[in-house]
Design a protein around this nucleic acid. Structure first.
Lengths: 198, 198
DNA sequence: GTCTATAAGATGATAGAC
DNA sequence: GTCTATCATCTTATAGAC
């Protein structure tokens, strides 16, 4: 309880930040070592190869994301609020240094990654899609949300909006861009009576 | 007219493909040289540094994209058809090897790129946003398109959908995903009378 | 314009002392 | 677990012959 987590976890935290800002091929063991004030050999002790590190990063992220969704479900049963909390997870990520979604970044670089990493990325998106589809379906059934097509299709669309808004906001170097685009899309999902509150 | 373009252009073509599939930090001069059957020194003659190559790639892409938009404008004045041609440009890109939008990829890696490259990326998105906003505004004025908020905001949303759908489709390793998401979003933009045709 | 040769530095990785 | 030392390889880049 004295130090902030063991070395392996600190390595993962720094590597995750570097991954989200620079990409998998945009950082090295040297970068991590310098950030933590240790040697690269120490990192190899915990993660023998960079592929091992990548697999653990993607897997941990998927687990943390599922845990975050579980907390959202425990906090509220309201579909609108659940949706807003989901979007908040992405907003909070981008808010800090315009960090990309970890799996969005990995998707872009997927052709250069070991297969297990690609598998974890696919799993992350599947989790997100399923959770969103269920939430969207509940919201529409309750007359609180309005959209055409299947909940699954809408879930995929929202995921694309979130990932794409991060990418475009970064490319245009205009931070507020993300929030504007996402808020605009959400407004279109809310039924007439629900959108009065804004 | 004998060979398919001079060496510099062939280098750019191969580099563009590698950039779209593997990212800026995911390919080297060696990869380009091997693909063309030449030596890396020859590439350095045309593009002294990788930054030079990156700047030319981003600049050329922006020019080619503007030229493509000019051709769309010459081919049709109908806002719906213009919109569909715009989306086709992205579809055609993704269709081949699930290639990402060149500037979408560069946006993700922007923290590792030389400033001039970032400038070209920003310019690309500005061009796209402006062209889309004009087209969307014309479509709504003609009663052919339906959306809330400003045309600029809708343009940004569509751009985010296109970029994000590419990323998510790649991450989920489900190619049809892109077309499904984009077609669904477009359907929502079409006014009731227009959407009957589908 | 393209080649061979070469170099300086980065990168992923291992062996073995402490 | 972390360090020093060392490694092979990759990467970007330059000099100079052809």
């Amino acid at each position: 309880m004295a130090e902030i987590g063991d070395t392996a976890e600190q390595v993962l935290d720094v590597a995750q930040r570097l991954l989200q800002t620079r990409g998998y091929n945009g950082f090295s063991y040297k970068d991590i070592a310098q950030a933590l004030g240790i040697r690269t050999a120490s990192i190899h002790y915990h993660f023998p190869t960079k592929a091992d590190l990548g697999v653990e990063l993607a897997g941990r992220h998927r687990r943390q994301f599922r845990a975050a969704l579980d907390r959202v479900e425990q906090r509220t049963t309201d579909p609108i609020q659940r949706l807003e909390r989901f979007v908040d997870l992405f907003r909070q990520t981008f808010e800090v240094e315009s960090r990309l979604c970890l799996c969005g970044m990995l998707s872009a670089e997927i052709a250069t990654l070991p297969e297990p990493v690609a598998g974890a990325v696919e799993g992350f998106f599947s989790d997100a899609e399923e959770w969103l589809a269920d939430t969207l379906a509940a919201g529409r059934k309750a007359g609180r949300l309005r959209f055409t097509g299947s909940p699954r299709q809408q879930a995929r669309l929202l995921l694309a909006v979130l990932e794409g808004a991060m990418v475009v906001a970064r490319g245009m170097r205009h931070t507020e861009h993300f929030q504007d685009v996402v808020a605009g899309h959400l407004r279109g999902l809310l039924s007439p009576q629900s959108s009065i509150k804004h």
